[in-house]
Design a protein around this nucleic acid. Structure first.
Lengths: 250, 250
DNA sequence: CGAGCAATTGACCGGCGTCAATGGGCGTGG
DNA sequence: CCACGCCCATTGACGCCGGTCAATTGCTCG
């Protein structure tokens, strides 16, 4: 890329693809990813990166920080659909869908990398396996939304929150960012409320219950899981839907 | 295809692609679609076509009838994620995700067509534009799930049900199956409950309210919308998320 | 014709929403 | 440097949408 903010072997994008691809990236493929003309930008917290209705000519990857996809009702009620961490390409769909049906915003201050659609298309042509991996990533994003659908509607708020925490820890761990079941949790309680489909007040009560049950602690925007088995049981968490290559490649 | 159950110009698959593609299918492309080696089968109502955990070697398209994608909690609570009508390819994702994270079942008796992954891959190679259209279809399916996410969590059951009816009528109309805002609605109330994330009892109350408001009638599995503007208003329905080519190609 | 499930309705309950109040952290401007 | 304002976090009181339980009717199919 144009600015070498990450050494190639630790590049978030490369790590992400390695965590989900069903093959091992070749040296050539890694180099092609690394060579993508990417415009790196710092974005403060709570900023929209793209908005519903936009017709983007580029897509972006999260290099650092946490972003979220959301939609709003006419009355202004927000619903967060997904969280995005280092390596994710949340708007890859814009390659085929001209008009965005979602908005994507930062949750914490983020470093993001923009790549022109044309450059992505060229990459897909020259390195089809990378394209396949990116498609896999897009399909996995959809699978995650479906799992959230099951949660909101058929699980109570306690299980839902436990499930969200399980998912975040698992995904971060898959890209090497949560080796010890601890992670930064930059979202505020009102934001969690939008992600879980409940109210901020009830988020607070639910977190309190999870703490009281001894499953987690959450202080200073830092989440720690104390009882992973207890948390996964409360959430009925089964990571199959994340389609991590480590588990699926067999 | 191997069995000519549909004349080429009315083939559900062709119609569907024409309803969402950003280009007009060439004669060659239509012929290629029509020539796909497809194994046609009749499936009775309430039968699983594929199940969570399967590793399919083929995908299928709905030729006739209504199918649904669903997931279940360990406690057996079901959540319907999407409905599929004529022309849809609900498990296209299985081309890239080996293990299915969802189950797909018929709602009404269906005619379905199975196509081997290899044949699909060959089609994608020989007719890349068709491949693009199919990717669009997959991404649109994901967009629909996201719209449902907004519904379940940030709209009440009345708006949710209105929204579902608006979506079904619009989608059927786009493939020519609901020219007059009337359609078959084969799903029972308990099934609607699973789609809306509420209980069967509450489905009944909500339908009653929609009828009382003069927006719809629903008798003998047949839905008729009497006040389209009223229904779309109650639902805050905006069809942008369906990405119909008629609207998006401009 | 009987079993089983869908449809419908009433009575009651509970999880979560709403409202309101308090305290705390943090940025900003005087 | 502190005061003010703003929003987040937390908690209690209360209300309501939708869940639960239960009974009745009707349809469909074997």
């Amino acid at each position: 890329m144009t600015e070498s903010v990450h050494p190639i072997h630790k590049h978030p994008f490369v790590r992400k693809i390695e965590s989900i691809a069903l093959f091992t990236l070749s040296v050539d493929e890694r180099a092609a990813l690394f060579a993508l003309p990417m415009q790196v930008a710092q974005v403060g917290a709570y900023q929209d990166i793209v908005r519903e209705g936009d017709r983007p000519s580029r897509c972006f990857t999260v290099l650092e920080g946490v972003a979220c996809t959301y939609k709003s009702t006419q009355a202004g009620k927000r619903r967060v659909m997904a969280y995005h961490v280092a390596g994710d390409v949340p708007d890859f769909q814009s390659l085929h869908l001209k008009v965005l049906d979602i908005s994507i915003a930062t949750v914490s201050p983020c470093q993001v990398g923009f790549v022109q659609h044309d450059a992505v298309r060229a990459l897909l042509r020259s390195h089809p396996r990378v394209g396949e991996a990116l498609w896999r990533a897009t399909l996995i994003d959809a699978a995650i939304v479906r799992e959230w659908m099951l949660n909101t509607g058929r699980r109570d708020s306690y299980a839902r929150m436990a499930h969200l925490f399980c998912e975040l820890i698992t995904r971060l761990d898959s890209v090497g960012l949560s080796p010890d079941r601890t992670c930064d949790l930059p979202m505020t309680q009102p934001e969690l409320a939008d992600a879980l489909g409940i109210t901020p007040v009830h988020v607070n009560r639910t977190i309190r219950d999870l703490k009281t049950a001894g499953l987690i602690t959450l202080r200073n925007r830092r989440l720690t899981v104390h009882d992973w088995d207890g948390l996964t049981a409360a959430a009925e968490f089964d990571p199959t839907y994340l389609h991590l290559s480590k588990r699926e490649a067999t």
